[in-house]
Simulated assay, not measured.
Amino acid sequence: MQSGNAFTTPFGRRSLSLGMLATQAQASDVDPQASVDKWKLFRSLCEARALIGISDRALVVLNALLTFYPQNALSEAGGLVVFPSNVQLSLRAHGMAPATLRRHLSALVETGLIFRKDSPNGKRYARKARTAGAG
């Protein structure tokens, strides 16, 4: 059993599947210096969506999430965190209804394409990095 890594459950108080746990463990082992072009990755995911088992509407949501990430290269050094509001995410997902948006976010989490971290009360939050000079 690993210690020191807190694996999160997906939003909506669902149980954590073994597949999600394995995906989170693999993500924690990624080389921090590795990077990939987000649009090349997205195109590859679109081509392989039948193999992955993800719908085209879920890919629309993923595309919208990627537009919130400021750099073209996805890397651990860049933070890999976006936290748009549901309203802004819906607008970039071509006006997708809130319930539909939540369903497709859930599908992205279940396939391991994204992780969602919520606070204990179920609300999203941004974690600020602690700097050495902060007091």
Results as ranks from 00 to 15, higher is better:
1 M>A: 14
15 S>V: 15
130 R>S: 08
120 P>E: 09
134 A>N: 11
88 Q>A: 07
26 Q>C: 08
49 R>A: 01
10 P>M: 04
33 Q>Y: 12
126 A>I: 15
26 Q>A: 10
98 P>D: 08
58 A>M: 01
7 F>H: 06
2 Q>W: 09
3 S>E: 14
86 N>E: 14
9 T>F: 15
86 N>S: 12
102 R>L: 07
76 E>H: 14
41 L>F: 07
51 L>M: 05
50 A>S: 10
134 A>W: 15
113 L>H: 00
64 A>I: 11
111 T>S: 03
46 C>S: 13
119 S>R: 11
50 A>H: 11
58 A>Q: 04
52 I>E: 01
109 V>Q: 04
23 T>D: 03
54 I>Q: 00
96 M>G: 00
76 E>F: 14
115 F>E: 08
74 L>W: 01
29 D>L: 10
133 G>Y: 15
20 M>R: 07
18 L>P: 03
1 M>F: 10
118 D>Y: 14
59 L>T: 02
135 G>M: 15
91 L>K: 05
132 A>L: 11
36 V>N: 02
15 S>R: 07
75 S>N: 11
66 L>Q: 02
14 R>N: 05
62 L>I: 07
47 E>H: 06
90 S>P: 08
106 S>Q: 09
82 V>Q: 04
19 G>R: 08
41 L>R: 00
37 D>H: 01
74 L>T: 00
44 S>P: 02
35 S>M: 11
110 E>I: 00
28 S>E: 15
94 H>R: 07
69 Y>K: 00
38 K>Y: 06
50 A>I: 07
106 S>V: 12
41 L>S: 02
73 A>G: 02
63 N>G: 03
119 S>T: 13
93 A>C: 05
68 F>Q: 02
32 P>V: 11
89 L>H: 00
58 A>S: 03
63 N>C: 07
45 L>P: 01
118 D>E: 09
26 Q>H: 12
42 F>L: 02
86 N>F: 15
2 Q>G: 11
41 L>P: 06
76 E>R: 10
13 R>C: 10
93 A>L: 04
40 K>P: 13
84 P>A: 03
14 R>V: 12
50 A>Y: 04
43 R>K: 02
61 V>R: 00
85 S>P: 07
15 S>C: 13
28 S>G: 12
126 A>K: 13
123 K>P: 10
32 P>N: 08
93 A>E: 07
17 S>F: 09
115 F>C: 10
46 C>A: 09
47 E>R: 07
132 A>D: 12
113 L>E: 01
118 D>R: 09
130 R>W: 13
122 G>K: 03
60 V>T: 11
